[in-house]
Computed example of a mutant assay.
Amino acid sequence: MTAPAPAPGRAALLLGIALGGFFDGIVLHQVLQWHHLLSGLERVRDLRLQLLADGLFHALMYLLALLGLALLWRARRALSGPAAGRVLGSAALVGFGLWHVLDALLSHWLLGLHRVRMDVADPLPWDLGWLAAFGLLPLAIALWWRRRPPPAAGPGPGAGHGRSGAVALGLAALLAGPLAALPAADADQVLVVFAPGTAGARAFDALARLDARVLWARDGVWAVQMAQPHQAWRLLGDGALLVGQGPLAGCLGWTRPAPR
């Protein structure tokens, strides 16, 4: 006896949450650089810990995206129904909006991990505007979409929307992950995180071999200027844990903090 195909809504919900996290990480952590994940915690001032927290956050989004894609594949037999496209789209919007609502309630206000903008005198209007645009609006659209009259059963226009919606949702997740891992394309300033205990002389020697000029160093994070930043990966064999260039640079490759 063939087991019934799982409903695709759960997969779309997880993918919507992952896309919401990727969106926040790419826009707020990387492009705009308005905050790190733990920017609001006074006791966490070590830049290395801030970057590590950002990396763990993105790793969690990758896990959610992979789980959502796996569930979506298992639910592929249920994608031919006339309402499958609407289920997928509305569930993804719920996940995207839910992420921003929970982020506002927990990270911004209850736990105080960060605010949308950490560099303004009054961050509340930015929190509320971000919540309305990317949290409440997607939830309202999803609710409206779910309340629309269901399409007629059987084959015909709309019957293939589930499959096309699944392809679009899967591609969005598969593209968002690599985008979150890419560094800024035009950066000649590279951040390098050296392992704790790495002697300064060893770090300077490794940087000198790549003709890198030290701009500043803080909390084990070194900012260097390199004529060939794509060669920064070679520092990984000389005491560096992470470098802000390469296909997995992520937030580190976009961060441009000023020296303290």
Rank of each mutant, 00 (worst) to 15 (best):
H230D: 12
G244Q: 03
P4C: 09
L191R: 14
H114T: 07
L242R: 15
A153H: 02
A7S: 15
G95E: 12
R234I: 00
A184Q: 09
A172D: 09
A153Q: 06
V167M: 12
L131G: 10
V101T: 10
F96G: 12
G239T: 13
Q33R: 13
L64S: 13
Q189M: 07
T255N: 06
R256E: 01
V87N: 04
A166C: 11
G154V: 08
V120R: 03
G197V: 00
W109E: 15
P259M: 10
W99H: 07
G9F: 01
H100Q: 15
A91W: 15
Q245L: 00
D54E: 14
L79V: 04
A153M: 02
A199Q: 05
A5Y: 05
A258Y: 01
A166R: 05
W216F: 15
G250N: 12
R148Y: 03
R115T: 05
G154I: 10
R48F: 10
G197P: 01
H108Y: 10
L169A: 13
A83Y: 00
T2S: 15
D54Q: 14
W144S: 11
A65W: 10
L182V: 01
A11R: 03
A132R: 02
R74L: 06
L79G: 03
D238E: 13
A152K: 05
P157T: 08
D119V: 01
G85T: 05
A3M: 03
A65K: 07
G40I: 02
A217R: 11
P8R: 07
G246L: 00
L19Y: 10
P138Q: 09
A133Q: 00
L19K: 08
L136P: 04
L111S: 00
G129F: 09
V44I: 15
H230T: 01
A75Y: 03
A65M: 13
A83L: 00
R256I: 02
H230A: 11
L66G: 13
L51M: 14
